[in-house]
Structures are given as C-alpha cells and as structure tokens.
Write a protein that binds this DNA or RNA. Structure first.
Lengths: 342, 342
DNA sequence: CAACTGACGGCAAGGGGTTGCCAAGTTGTT
DNA sequence: AACAACTTGGCAACCCCTTGCCGTCAGTTG
C-alpha cells in the first residue's frame, strides 16, 4: 500500500534524492551511467513519481480537464476522442467531468479541479461570461462551442451551417421554419437562432422560435406539439436528441415526416443515422474540434490575453430522409393563441 | 494566478496556520467565533484549500476515478449518471477516464491516477486478472460488469437475463441462435456466451458463436454476414451497437428483420429504441449499478480482502420489433465452409 | 482559594518531490 | 604542472497543508 518514494530509490541506488529527481525530470542533468542505474533500481522497486507532490512545487500536472455540459449527449463522443488523441501525443492525461447541465455543478467542479490540472477545456459551458473570465484568470482555458472575447475557442461554423440548412429547406419549397430552442444559458442556442434568422432573412424565409427546451429526446414531445400548434412545415431542432424526440411524437400523432413536416437537427449523432426516417442534420468534424482545442490549450502558455485564437471549423449538412418537399396544401396556421412558453 | 494559501489567511486573520487548517478540516476543534472569523477572511481572500497538498499528508482526495472501456458506448451513460449521483451525495468528485478499449491505455491511466484518487471504479475492464489484483493492492477497487474473486463487483444478472432471451426466442419457435461475440478480453463477452449456452441447453436450443467483434456499429456488417452465412434465424449480438450495425447490414442485403432473422442486443441504449425496427434488448437499471458501485467503493475501508461483496442486479428484457416468429421455411444452413474468423 | 479539567490555539515536523547554489571531480589548455 | 571550464552530485529550502504534542487560560470543584 505504501508507495515507494524517491527516498527509497535514492538510498537503494546510493545517491541523493535530488539526483533521483533529476534522473526523472531532467535527463540531461545527470550522467548517463548514474541515470541508468537509478532507472534500474526504480524499476525494481516499482517506483513511480507521485504527480501530486511534483505538482505541488512545479505547478505542472500533465493533466487537462474537459468539462462537458452533459456527458450523456452522444454529440461529445467525437469531441472527446479528438481531445484524447491529441492529449496522448503530448502525454497528457485527459480528465472528463460532467456538469450535468447545471452551471452550479460546473462551477464547483472547476473550482475543485482547478489546482489539480494545467488547464480547462470547457465544452458548451453553461457558465455566465463573468465566471468564464474568472476561470481564465486562474488557468488556461479553451472554449468549445462557445465564444467569448479574450478567450481561446473552437467552434463549428454555424453561420455557414445555418445558411446551408435554410437553403436546403428553401429549395424544398418551405416558406418558413420553426426553431426549437436549446437551453436559455446555452451560447450555442443563441448563436443558432441568430444564424437561422439572418440566413432566413437573406432568402426571404420566415422564422419563429419556440422553447427553450432541455435538449433531450424526452423533451421532444412538448417541442413537437408546440411546432405543430404553430403550423410549421419545417422544424429545426436545437440538437439531434431533441429532433428525434420530435419525430417520435409526430409519429405518435400520425403526422408524417417528411411529407407533412420536415425535421432538421444538429450534431449528427449516431442515432440520427439509425432512426426512421433518418435525420437530416448539421454535422462537422467534431474530432478535429476536440483535437484543435487541446492543441490550443497546450500552447496557451505562449500567448497573451489579447492574442487568443478563435478557431472556426467547417460544418457539413448531412441529408437524410427527414427533410422533403413542403406540403402543397399548407397546414393551417393556428390562431397562435397558445404558443409554448418562450 | 498565485493562489492564496493558508498562510495568507492565517496572517490576515491573526491566527496560526494550524488554526486555519483546523477551521476547515475539523470544525469542532476550534471555537465558533474564531472559526467564523477565519471563514470570513478566507472568503474575502477567495481562499480554497489545495487538494494536492492536503492529500499529500492525509491521503484523502475526496475523488474517485471511473475507468470505462470505451466512453463512446452509450451504455455507460446511465452508469455514469448513477455513479455521479452517489458521489455527489458524499461530496466526492468523480473523474471519468477512457481506456479506449486498450488494456495498455487502461493500465497507464490507472497508474497515473493511482496516487491522485481514493479508489477506482473499473467498468468492463479489459485488464487481465493479475493486473486487477495489482490495482486492488494499491487502491480500493470496485469492478463493474466484471467479477473476480476477492474484489468487490457490481454486475447485472446475466444468467437470468440470458435465460429470458433464450426463452423469448424459443417461444417464437427458434430452434437455435448465433451469438456474435464481443472482444476477446471482455469478461462480459465470456459470461454472456456461457450463460447463453447453459440457458439454451436447458430448453434444447442450439447455440453457436462467431466473432470476436469490436462492439461497434461499424463491425455489424461483418457480423451480419457471418450470421447469415451461418444460416441463423436468431442472432444475439454482444451489445446494442453491434446489433444495430447488424440490422443495417441485413437491411442492405434485403434480409428482413424480424421476418427472416430475429435480432437481440444487450444494454438497451437510446438508439435501440429509435432504430427501425426497434431492437429487442436486455436492459437493466444501470443507474443503480453505478450508484451501487460508488456506494461499495466509499465503504471499502471497512471491509477486509476476503469480505468483498458481489452485487448482482436484475435485468429486464425489453421487447421490441426486432424479434419475431422463426421463419417457417428455414433458410438453408450453408455448408459451414466459410465461418467468420473466430 | 488552590487544584484540576477541558477547550483552544500554536509550534514544528512531516509528506514526496523540485531546484538554486555550492563543492568536488574531470577534462582540457597553455 | 598549474589553472580554467565543465560536469556531476549533494545540501537544504520550499510547495501547501495536516496533525501530534504542548502550553495557556478560563471555568469547575471541593
């Protein structure tokens, strides 16, 4: 149970602890032969440096934490994979922590971990801007799927992506769309809404928004009913999970997708490919997002506060069966008396 | 950047560092009024104890690590949620680390984290038994979806579960089934195979196994072809991801599910519910598994090595459209000349 | 009012490494 | 042969907090 320490190695090898320490952390500083002996003894004793003790003085942990808003969202998979790949290359450990869609939990986790990691990857953070600044003041931070002046970030190009969605729907004859909004404190939700509005305006399409909704399949029911009530022919859901929930509900109500209503999601998760009908969704190279974010984080030391890069990666609209021609006999638009809470 | 330390607080409050320390870690040991003052000063200075330094001496980190074989498997969601809930109750931080299906990565991550956490939750570990013993010698360990004498574990009752699967298939008229095996070093794969065999024997059903397969949807193609080649009327895939991949491939080849072939998975992931046809799968209360595992880990200190509990939780067979009556004109069984690699 | 008992706070020694500084040992130079 | 310039390795302080032990002081008890 008691780990072997640097002292054990030092006495077993007949050298000072400082020499052992240097053998590990500064290979050039000790002669090859001594180093060799120390390493052998260390291996025999099964010695491994204690990262805590090391970090206590040096401040380096070789560890970064990735905080995700909700780890049960499959969207993060690729992100995580990309981040992990890049972290491994530099021999960093990637810690995953789940904020469970709660700003409070997110904040607490960050504070607890702050002294234990070299930096944070904040994916779809639900924290208010001020809190992000505070975190950034303590540790290097890279934002994912969120932007804030002064902080490094990696996002997918939603301006262009939403333009693609709108163009796609327009080409199918849709005259307006309904956006099923994501959580109130989600930067991404606001960004998507703004991008959809501006893209729609350019082609003369009408846009409305209902929500916010927690972006889970279980919330799809309420969202679907709201959209139907609104008389929508095309709905763009905040993410794939919500979109799938919407389709389930529509199917229950006997409303056909895409004949009566077209549905579009975001993220291109696995389930979007296997559900029926397949979900048209805005995807992107999430692996690259994760990779780029770690890259930025590891090189953060060499940049000043007013020199924080904003990386914007391209999106790709994945067409599946959930989008189709707008219905010719347009469903009557309801009297608009009972919109969903907004 | 420089964090405020216990010294800053001590001098600002006019007390010794030890008093500050006790105010935090041993509330009763210091008078209420002193404690109050210290807390106020600490709050003003935005002091937070450094968990590293604390752990260095006390050995307590208030942190447990959950190592999962592949975090991109949705099956872990509920497990993670359950574990997180339980950890939060005791104010423990749950660290997630991904082994990426690689025993080597898993081992390295564990070794790196070992001095930094109070214990490990090993979910579907791919490590050989000896390595598990070694880890357990260093830190408390709770196995999830795996058992090993001498170590605490939490698993779903696959004996009973497989009996349910077999009974279900038998009741639909199937006379034999093919098991599409999971990874070679997966204890769960071996357990499921054994359980299926014994359950099938009891009802006089034939069982065969092909594989192993990496349990991802992308591997479903090869698995499906192997099963078809085998003339199977019912296939039981190692997990839902693989099962879904199988169904996709079957559909490509014009083989109908469930009319020509019935498909069963394990885990009851979200996609199993939305794919077409819906996937019959063996689920269970994974949240409870995660919760129970953390429970065991936190109480590990009070148990001896030969008193390690094995918790077995019930499974539930979720029936969906992917299983149906065995075809009456039984597909000819191929000459068996070209089985999939085994 | 003396003796005793707790409660409370301080001193100082770690815990496992890292690192600035210094001394001894090597090798090279003239 | 004497001295300069490196190499190496050791000493000891330090990182931030915990904790055993001790002294002080106020409150009890007889």
């Amino acid at each position: 149970m008691a780990r072997t320490t640097i002292y054990d190695v030092a006495s077993a090898a007949g050298v000072a602890t400082s020499t052992v320490s240097r053998a590990f952390s500064r290979p050039g500083r000790v002669s090859a032969v001594t180093r060799e002996r120390i390493m052998r003894v260390a291996a025999e004793l099964d010695y491994r440096p204690n990262p805590h003790a090391r970090a206590l003085l040096s401040g380096k942990h070789q560890t970064v934490a990735m905080v995700v808003s909700d780890i049960t969202n499959p969207h993060y998979f690729e992100l995580i994979r990309g981040a992990e790949m890049r972290a491994r290359v530099s021999e960093y450990t990637l810690l995953l922590v789940n904020a469970e869609e709660s700003p409070r939990v997110e904040w607490e986790q960050i504070q607890r971990l702050s002294p234990a990691v070299d930096g944070f990857l904040l994916a779809a953070s639900r924290l208010p801007d001020e809190n992000l600044q505070q975190v950034a003041a303590q540790r290097p931070v890279v934002l994912i799927s969120r932007e804030l002046p002064g902080l490094a970030s990696v996002v997918l190009d939603h301006g262009e992506g939403c333009r693609q969605i709108v163009a796609h729907l327009a080409s199918l004859g849709h005259r307006d769309l309904v956006y099923l909004a994501g959580p109130r404190n989600s930067w991404m939700a606001a960004t998507r809404w703004a991008a959809l509005q501006s893209a729609a305006e350019q082609v003369g399409m009408g846009v409305r928004r209902i929500g916010p909704f927690t972006p889970k399949a279980t919330q799809g029911g309420a969202a679907a009913d709201g959209a139907v009530n609104d008389g929508a022919t095309a709905v763009v859901a905040h993410n794939d999970l919500l979109a799938i929930g919407v389709m389930q509900r529509l199917s229950q109500r006997g409303i056909r997708v895409p004949e009566d209503v077209s549905v579009v999601g975001f993220d291109d998760i696995f389930a979007a490919d296997v559900c029926t009908p397949g979900l048209t969704t805005l995807g992107g190279a999430h692996v690259d997002v994760g990779r780029a974010a770690v890259e930025l984080l590891l090189t953060a030391g060499s940049r000043t506060a007013d020199d924080q890069p904003r990386v914007v990666l391209p999106t790709a609209l994945v067409l599946r069966r959930s989008t189709g021609n707008a219905p010719t006999t347009r469903p009557r638009r309801s009297r608009g008396s009972q919109r969903s809470a907004s």
